[in-house]
Write a protein that binds this DNA or RNA. Structure first.
Lengths: 228, 228
DNA sequence: GTGCGTTTCAAACATACGTTTGAATGACTG
DNA sequence: CAGTCATTCAAACGTATGTTTGAAACGCAC
């Protein structure tokens, strides 16, 4: 049925792949650009050079297309991040993993956009759009993909920060992921404002430094309020 | 023309105000709930109990309505925040203002939702939706409202952090505001996940502590990378 | 009461959207 | 060659949207 029946011509030119793949590629770019609800079947098919009915034929509905667009990159990305955590846990067999090492993995996917080009620049932006979508069904789609990783990161951070109350670490970790998402969506904008193209490695160092300090901050020590 | 011709009946009941005000109130709640592009003229008018044509009559277009919804709360909010900065600068005449004091003002508007009820809970969420909107025209609308305050905060933070390079402070401040926005949109969600209703004062202390530590972090000192 | 300006109302308009349909195309199998 | 299957295509369907229209309703001044 939905199987690969790709016109047995044995020259699957990379420039003109599957209709299905072409749709997914354009849809991903469109979601990154204008958001999920604003991505239109008609615009996608026009830009991809396929027929209007192609999406409903290959995916069943617009909603199922967005689900596949999400799954496409995220599943791959997830196994990679999980593997990184595995390596980290075996390296630190005693269980005391530095906060910075965990954060490096959390923020690592911004590197992929530059280094190995496995994940395009607009891919992370697309993920950001998913998280910022107001629709409850959309964010429900995200849960199975991101919750396991987040839970595992949280556990490591709780262990790495024995002096901080667990609930406080949870709160801070929640906002670390929020910052990651904000970075996905607006890093290019900030880059445009300040004029200079950023070095990805440097950005990773910055993110880790900022968040590590925030995570480690003494929670019970508010500053001395000034009088007024 | 557009002047207040509010049916000279001298009983402007608070429960049933202007058609215009009622529209704005519903629109604000709707933007907070489902986003700007998803807010529908028809749903607003139905929920507000006014005629479908009322929006185009009173505001001219849907776009001008959203502009007024934004301006409504933000202008008020801005003069208040600016006044807070004024007071802070006179208090610290020498110019050395603690980072925490500046951050308290930045995050202060989350307090308004609880304390004086001048700004409803959904108002901050609405502002968050504006910032997360993919449409370039929408975020262009925000610039004049928020840029002056942000610029002033940045200047204070740069002065308060003489050991951090200016560009680094800019980068970090950018993400502090990102965190603020993320808080607007998802604080209730995190609250729902962890089950307990949060104390607003405590949340403010947490935000300030986290961001202050991040801002002050030594930028040149990456952690000792573990081998592999 | 008459006239006037503002506001409300039901109805229609034009456009965009996701989806469905049925015929046409093309490739492989028997 | 005939048959079967997956795929493509142009066209239409139904619905939702923002906007416009012209008449009706209302309040107020003369």
């Amino acid at each position: 049925m939905t199987g690969k029946n790709k016109t047995t011509t044995n020259a699957p030119d990379a420039a003109e792949p599957d209709t299905k793949s072409r749709i997914i590629a354009v849809a991903e770019r469109m979601i990154a650009g204008r958001g999920i609800q604003q991505m239109s079947i008609r615009d996608i098919t026009r830009e991809a050079g396929v027929n209007l009915a192609a999406i409903n034929y290959h995916f069943g509905s617009k909603e199922r297309l967005t689900a596949e667009v999400l799954a496409r990159q995220v599943t791959h990305l997830n196994v990679e991040r999980m593997a990184m955590l595995d390596r980290l846990e075996t390296d630190y067999a005693d269980g005391v993993i530095p906060v910075e090492s965990v954060l490096e993995i959390v923020f690592n996917l911004i590197l992929c956009a530059d280094d190995k080009a496995r994940i395009a620049e607009h891919t992370v932006k697309m993920i950001g759009r998913f998280f910022m979508d107001p629709d409850a069904e959309v964010i429900a789609m995200l849960r199975p993909y991101f919750l396991p990783f987040k839970a595992r990161v949280l556990k490591l951070l709780v262990r790495a920060l024995p002096d901080i109350p667990r609930e406080e670490v949870e709160w801070r970790t929640f906002h670390v992921f929020g910052l990651l998402n904000h970075y996905f969506l607006f890093a290019d904008l900030h880059c445009k404002e300040c004029g200079k193209k950023h070095n990805v490695k440097k950005e990773l160092r910055r993110l880790v430094a900022f968040c590590a300090a925030g995570l480690k901050a003494s929670p019970g020590a508010p500053h001395q309020a000034h009088s007024h």
